[in-house]
Design a protein around this nucleic acid. Structure first.
Lengths: 140, 140
DNA sequence: ATAGAGTCTGTAGGTACTACAGGATCAAGA
DNA sequence: TCTTGATCCTGTAGTACCTACAGACTCTAT
């Protein structure tokens, strides 16, 4: 018989279910120190507090928004220090936004090129294809 | 003294320079069998033919256009078989184009979300930031 | 008591490279 | 001819971000 465990502490499986996160990813985030080492039961099972759950949600949401692990590390260290300002967080978000916008630009250019290449192709049973020529390029 | 080597055969460094490809990437492509094992000098240095150079250009250009290694493998195996048709190549290109367009869509959604979150932030010296709140989410 | 679910650890795999260590070879000048 | 520096060789490890598996242990319910 063990002493009563706080009701708001959950094990890894439950945390995964609640957060929609893959089971192994939680352990991975602990390994790379995005999540702190959680409490353990006497037998060694991880027990996550409400704070842990909030922190994981923060990480997952940031990932969804395309922040890299390193960017999240920066965000978290600001939040952890407790002394962050709105301006600092805003700056990091803007930086990230710039990256995203640039990526959209690049992909649009790619899309145009692919469409151009593709439009020159008759899409027929003919052997040889202008797409292949385009992929090899000019130089001989 | 060695017998004369064909002028159009180049070593790895020269191939890298000509193609703009990283030196190591060439060996990597050989390892994963996108490039065939090239000829060698008696002492073991790789010698690339004009065909090898064309093939590498094909791969690099396809990568630039965002084709994955597996997609390129498909394209190359069609071209290698010699029996590919315009239609087959076109189909693969269209498939890839669909992926690219989807990615653009996803990133645009992300961009909008980031802008929304960011716009609620006063970008000031204040501690606490609505971005942080947004990243943690609703559930508590 | 036992079956099955859940958890533990360490490690390998996937994608597409890139970089390094430690040694052999090549090309050009002294 | 010797030497120096650039280039080449091999194998392996590292990057980002997970995901999956093996083999052992623990928990829960019947």
């Amino acid at each position: 018989m063990s002493f009563t465990l706080a009701r708001d502490h959950v094990k890894r499986g439950e945390l995964a279910r609640r957060s929609g996160c893959n089971l192994e990813t939680i352990r991975y985030y602990e390994g790379i120190k995005l999540l702190p080492e959680p409490a353990r039961t006497e037998s060694g099972h991880r027990l996550y507090s409400i704070d842990d759950q909030r922190r994981l949600r923060f990480i997952l949401r940031s990932r969804e928004l395309g922040f890299s692990i390193d960017e999240i590390r920066s965000l978290l260290s600001m939040v952890d220090s407790g002394a962050y300002t709105c301006g600092e967080i805003h700056a990091l978000t803007q930086e990230h936004l710039t990256l995203v916008s640039q990526k959209i630009k690049d992909l649009k250019k790619l899309e145009r090129t692919l469409k151009n290449i593709s439009s020159e192709c008759a899409n027929s049973d003919a052997p040889d294809c202008p797409i292949v020529e385009a992929l090899v390029g000019d130089a001989g």
